[in-house]
Simulated scan of single mutants.
Amino acid sequence: MKIVVIQEEIIQTDITPKELTERWKRLEQLPGIDEVVIEVPAHYPNIEQLHTYIGDADAVFGLWIGSDNMNEAFLSQHPNLKYVATLGHGWEKFDTEMTRKRGISISNTIYGSQTIAEYAFALLMDVCHHIGTHDTRIKTIDWSVPENHNEFCKSVTRQIELYDKTIGVIGLGAIGFAFAKMAQGFGMHVLAYSRHKKTGAEYDFIEQVSLDELLARSDFISLHTPHTPATEHMIDQDTIARMKDGVILINTARGALIDEQALADALATGKVLAAGLDVLTDEPPVCGSPLLTAPNTVITGHIAWLTRESRIRAIDMAIDNFRCYLEGHPVSIIN
């Protein structure tokens, strides 16, 4: 069996390509593996480059799943392909029935539940307390001037407490559940809406409600649901109108969950008090994107997943998932 790995580029300061490559070489230890080819492109390859890399492989790791590659035209050029692993939690819509008919198993890698939940909570804390703003202020004021001394112990932004407030979690998968547990630890009342109600004692601290009820009762809302046709623009003018006045919105899932113009308008009026976003519909953002100039908005560049620990964990989990596939009990299959 031939395996091709499309190793993701290094976009952080605390890990090297060599470290990732060495981790991927653990695939060679699996039974029945004849060849492991690790491609290390400078950037994620285009479609033609993907064809060249994948070639006659039986399995490929590191593909970003979507309709541009999970289609008949693309897959027909790789008749040996039977296993595809994306190294992320999420994926874009594709023809799942077609891939099943071709006998291809497609898996995701749920490596970053805690990592991404922590980042979502960091965004929440930042929009509530603006720590960076106050840090910059303290470091730039000339404290040798006596008249400036009254500027110490002063807040120039509203400070918002989380304790005893209600937070709504949309999407109660692994990331949403990790986030919900953090919110509970801060003494928040946790509501959640998910496509399927979760059962089990571990969910007892969460009040699972309808989307309408969550929108109406939540002081804060955090999005943790995949992007599908059903969830695209689920946060739009209509759903925002059903939210509490002054709600705070967090999104570390997918940018297309939000109608960005509707959110920008709501931020301008104060209907939405603030937003913390790690994802946008267009990445990088297009010129004139309404959220770039919206008030009370913190935006980062899709980095919630980007810790050293998560990069290593993603590789280890992808290999473990593949081992399960080879042993006849596949896990994390999304098609």
Rank of each mutant, 00 (worst) to 15 (best):
G276Q: 12
L50V: 07
D135K: 15
S222Q: 04
A178H: 03
I206L: 07
A241D: 15
F61M: 09
G301K: 00
W143P: 13
T231M: 06
L172C: 14
F205D: 12
H89G: 11
V156A: 09
C153I: 11
I303C: 10
I47A: 01
G200F: 03
V36T: 10
V247D: 02
L191R: 00
C324W: 09
E213P: 01
G66W: 03
F61G: 10
Q184F: 03
Q184D: 13
D219R: 00
I141W: 15
I235A: 05
E19Y: 07
W305A: 13
T166Q: 01
L162I: 12
I221Q: 04
S218Y: 05
T252N: 04
V286K: 03
A117I: 11
R313S: 15
Q261W: 00
I315S: 00
A120R: 05
S332T: 02
G328P: 05
D58C: 08
R242D: 14
P31E: 15
H329Y: 13
N108I: 08
H129A: 11
D278F: 09
L277M: 11
V5A: 09
A85F: 02
D68L: 10
I138D: 11
L291K: 09
G112R: 03
L257C: 05
E8I: 13
H89E: 05
I312Y: 12
W91F: 10
A122S: 11
L50M: 13
R242M: 15
S218W: 05
I170G: 04
L81G: 12
A274N: 10
A318E: 01
K18F: 13
T293N: 12
S107M: 10
T281N: 03
K101T: 13
L326Y: 04
L162E: 08
G173R: 08
L124A: 02
D58M: 08
I315F: 00
I235N: 06
W305Y: 10
Q49R: 04
V40N: 04
Y325W: 14
N296W: 05
A120E: 13
V127T: 12
D126N: 11
G171Y: 01
D126T: 01
Q261E: 07
M188T: 10
E232S: 07
A264F: 01
P31L: 12
T140W: 02
M317C: 06
I167D: 06
S289W: 05
H329D: 15
T136L: 13
G62C: 05
D164P: 04
I104E: 14
Q208S: 03
A274G: 00
R23F: 08
L326C: 04
V37L: 10
L280T: 14
I167W: 04
Y44H: 06
T293V: 08
Y203L: 12
